[in-house]
Each structure stands twice: as C-alpha cells, then as structure tokens.
Design a protein around this nucleic acid. Structure first.
Ligand SMILES: [Mn+2]
Ligand SMILES: [Mn+2]
Ligand SMILES: [Zn+2]
Ligand SMILES: [Zn+2]
Lengths: 149, 149
DNA sequence: GAACTTATGATACTTAGTATCAGTTGTTCA
DNA sequence: TGAACAACTGATACTAAGTATCATAAGTTC
C-alpha cells in the first residue's frame, strides 16, 4: 500500500491545501489495489459528507500532480489508478513498476504482468521512430483460465 | 482517401444491410483525415435527416467490423479513426494489421509501429498467465522528433 | 406483392464530468 | 488574537458521450 503521508506532502509542497476532503480521497486512493472509478469512490465518501464534485475535483488534482493516471479500457477510460511514479516512490525501490495488464473479456478479471514486455523494445522503437519515448500503455485481452473451458 | 466501396462490401458481406444512413456515415468516415468525434459527424449528417442514435450505432458497428478504432488520447477516448487494417487494405499493403502507436504528447501526432513488438512476447505471457490471449492495445507516449528540440 | 427481418429517427434516459455559487475553511498578517 | 482574503467546499444545475425503447420505415425472401 502506498504511503498516504507521501502524497499529502506532495499536495502541500505544491501549494495546495490539505483539507479533510482531500485527505479522505488520498486515503482511499492509497488503499486501492485495482483501477477504480470516481463514482465508486464517491459512493464510499459521500457517507462522510464529501460531495461528488469534490471527488472529481480531487481526482483531477491528483492527476495533475502525477499521483494518478487514467487507464484506458476497451469500453472507456473512466478508471483511475496510482501512477507508476507514485508506486515507485513509495518504498518499492527495487525496479520500476508497471501496470501492463491482461483482461479477461469474459469475466473482466484483471491480471498484472510481473514483468514489462516492452522493456527490451523501447530503445529499438525510439531509434526507428525518432521519438523520445516517455511511457506506454499496454493492455492484453483474452480469456482467463477459469473462463476458458 | 479510403475506398468507400471496400467498406460497404464489408458491411454487406457480414450480413448487414447497406442503408442510406450507413452509406452516408461510411462516406464521411472515408474522407476523414484526422480522428473525429461522433458529435462532429452527427452535426454534418443531421442535415441529411440522419438521427443521432444512428450515427452512434453505425460507428459502433464499424468498430465491430474492425473498420474503425477508438483513439485513446490521454484526455479521453471519444475520438474514432480508421483502423490500420482498413488503411492498409485500401493501399494494397500487407494484411498484417495491428494498431500499435506512438503518440506525441506535444503535437498529438500519431505514428504507427511498422512491426508489432508484442509478437515475440505473447506466447510467453500466455504460458505464465494462463490466459488465452486474443489481442492487445499498445500506445507509447513521448515526444516526436519535430517537437523535441 | 405479403410476410418477415432489420434498421431507423425521435425521445427519454444514463453516466462521466464541469460550471456556478453561496457558504466554509485555512492562511496571512496587523 | 482576529479580521481580511484566498482557497476550498457541497449542492445544484448543467453539458457531453453514449444507450434503451419503441413505433415506424425500409430491405429481403418467397
Ligand atoms: Mn510496461
Ligand atoms: Mn501489436
Ligand atoms: Zn475470466
Ligand atoms: Zn510532436
């Protein structure tokens, strides 16, 4: 789990106020293990009196602070998740962490690749394309073992 | 410009009816030079009496027929464009079709990889994950040569 | 041509996200 | 301390993207 204190530091350090609402959103975000939607988050936070617009506003702020990124599933891009940068910075100093996924088209299960298959390709692609490559988004689609019988 | 006849053939060949509305959408799609939104398309087509729902329905059909793909820009995914497969076919190129792209974060330019870097990885990933892998979505993000100076 | 199937436009609805605004909270500085 | 001020808030209304419904219209088959 990502350290909430680290994220609240980022908010304050960038000159934004650390309010109750923001603290609550950050706490939930840190506990997230999988991509989540703003609506899901609001469903939980409204019991604490936090408004829907504030949830959206805070998720937007966290994106601008590079804490969250939006993920693009086949059906849309309403999901958010912790950025690789955030996960790296929070005490898994080992190697860089990625979010490459395999999604089951039947049951929706999402698995994460334990190794980034692009690692070996990026240099070659940069050379051939002339782009300076900063990142990527990779989703594989298929059928999981459970559904495939 | 992509050949509209080729696309209407696909529609008919797959058992869908080639109607006035669909013909109109296909014609516009073929003329598109850049990613477009459904709303933009509707704005033009409603003068010909074509309904908004039909525009969305037809764009969806064209995606299912692999004629269109949705473009996942970082800010959202409401844009559609001709699939690499369609563009290849219309220029009488190879039949190998993939949509792996590099997107310039500065000017928005989209380049297509001429070779799928996942080709060599899919078997290994399938073995390790237990998934039967059917496809993938890969976007690289960075800065193009023109913008990077 | 009738019978049948598919597709249609209009309309209402849902979902994701934004704008507005009066009230509240956090910060600065006298 | 506390007023002054800016940042932030929840409620509400709104926009934008897309879907569901349904009676009507148009293709297709015989
Ligand atoms: Mn990766
Ligand atoms: Mn590929
Ligand atoms: Zn599954
Ligand atoms: Zn560029």
């Amino acid at each position: 789990m990502v350290d909430a204190l680290h994220l609240t530091e980022i908010i304050k350090q960038k000159g934004f106020r650390l309010t109750i609402a923001r603290q609550n959103v950050v706490d939930m975000v840190c506990k997230s293990l999988y991509p989540f939607t703003a609506e899901e988050m609001y469903a939980q936070l409204k019991e604490q009196g936090i408004g829907r617009a504030t949830v959206f506003r805070t998720l937007k702020l966290l994106q601008e602070l590079d804490v969250l990124v939006r993920v693009h599933l086949e059906e849309g891009c309403q999901h958010y998740q912790l950025s690789a940068a955030t996960i790296n910075a929070s005490h898994c100093h080992t190697e860089d962490h990625h979010h490459d996924r395999i999604i089951c088209r039947h049951c929706g299960e999402i698995s994460y690749l334990d190794e980034c298959p692009m690692k070996t390709n990026v240099n070659e692609i940069a050379k051939r394309s002339g782009y300076r490559i900063q990142g990527h988004h990779l989703d594989l689609y298929g059928v999981c073992r459970g559904c495939d019988k």
